[in-house]
């Protein structure tokens, strides 16, 4: 690699606009370039650090590309079987009610194999945070169709495009959980632009704070990309996501706590 000369003179306090969260470990993330998982991890680490709740937080990582999330953020973790994270979170929170408990799950994990656990933990109003990364595909296993895959979208198990007549329509599980009285705050965001990253960080921080109120499940869907599974460059993937995913999964709050409704920051 060509050596960048003179870089040292740029490394000055006044030039530092960004730093690595102290809770992000030095493990090299295994994600593909441009993947939304890593950005979301960073936000999560920053919030836990800034809120000063490392010693009070227990995360549950899924089966999916983010299975090794526990290697990247320096908190206590439990690694769930595929789809079962909300059941695990339920017990942790019931037994340690003063702790912050969250799950981090992909769309296959949360909306296919774990549908029952998702719906019922939300329906019981478990006082946990569910972070749902919807990239419309099974990333980890090599790009198979997910319940969230768009109509006509090609994947390795829908090579001719998702045929809704036989494969069903994309499952908007976030819309479903928003209808349940057990959920307290339900929102859909993205992390593909700096503005969206800031907004997602804001709502995620709020969701962590809501857990202190003991008022029910907070649910954050992050419409994300999978450049590898979609067979696109990161730039193409983000553009494709804006043009195709967002119409199906419009960003914004689906359910906000009543007392907050007037002061909600408007999201598009």
């Amino acid at each position: 690699m060509k050596e960048i000369t003179g870089i040292k003179e740029y490394i000055k306090p006044e030039n530092l606009v960004y730093r690595k969260s102290s809770l992000l470990t030095d493990d090299i993330m295994h994600y593909c370039p441009g993947c939304g998982h890593s950005t979301t991890h960073r936000i999560l680490a920053e919030i836990i650090e800034e809120e000063g709740i490392q010693q009070d937080t227990i995360g549950i990582s899924p089966v999916g590309c983010s299975v090794f999330l526990y290697n990247y953020i320096d908190i206590d973790w439990q690694e769930a079987a595929h789809g079962r994270a909300p059941a695990i979170a339920t017990a942790i929170k019931r037994l340690l009610p003063d702790k912050f408990v969250f799950t981090y799950q992909g769309d296959g994990d949360l909306a296919a194999i774990g549908t029952a656990e998702t719906i019922h933990s939300c329906n019981r109003g478990e006082n946990i945070l569910i972070i749902f990364i919807n990239n419309g595909i099974y990333g980890m296993t090599g790009g198979q169709m997910a319940p969230t895959t768009l109509p006509g979208m090609k994947s390795s198990t829908s090579p001719y495009g998702r045929d809704v007549a036989t494969m069903g329509n994309p499952l908007k599980i976030t819309d479903i959980v928003a209808t349940l009285p057990g959920t307290f705050y339900v929102t859909r965001q993205s992390v593909h632009t700096p503005a969206n990253v800031r907004r997602t960080k804001r709502v995620m921080r709020k969701a962590f704070q809501y857990q202190k109120l003991n008022r029910g499940t907070c649910f954050i869907e992050i419409v994300s990309n999978c450049p590898s599974g979609w067979k696109m460059t990161p730039v193409q993937a983000n553009k494709w996501m804006e043009e195709n995913m967002f119409p199906w999964y419009p960003l914004g709050d689906l359910k906000v706590p009543e007392e907050q409704q007037d002061q909600q920051p408007k999201t598009e």
């Binding site: 979170a89 339920t90 019931r94 037994l95």
Partner: peptide
């Protein structure tokens, strides 16, 4: 004491609680 939505959920609740 929790009545789970299935035995699958119940045993995973056990996993979570045991992990604590």
């Amino acid at each position: 004491v929790v009545q789970a939505e299935s035995e699958v959920a119940a045993i995973n609740m056990v996993y979570g609680g045991a992990g604590c």
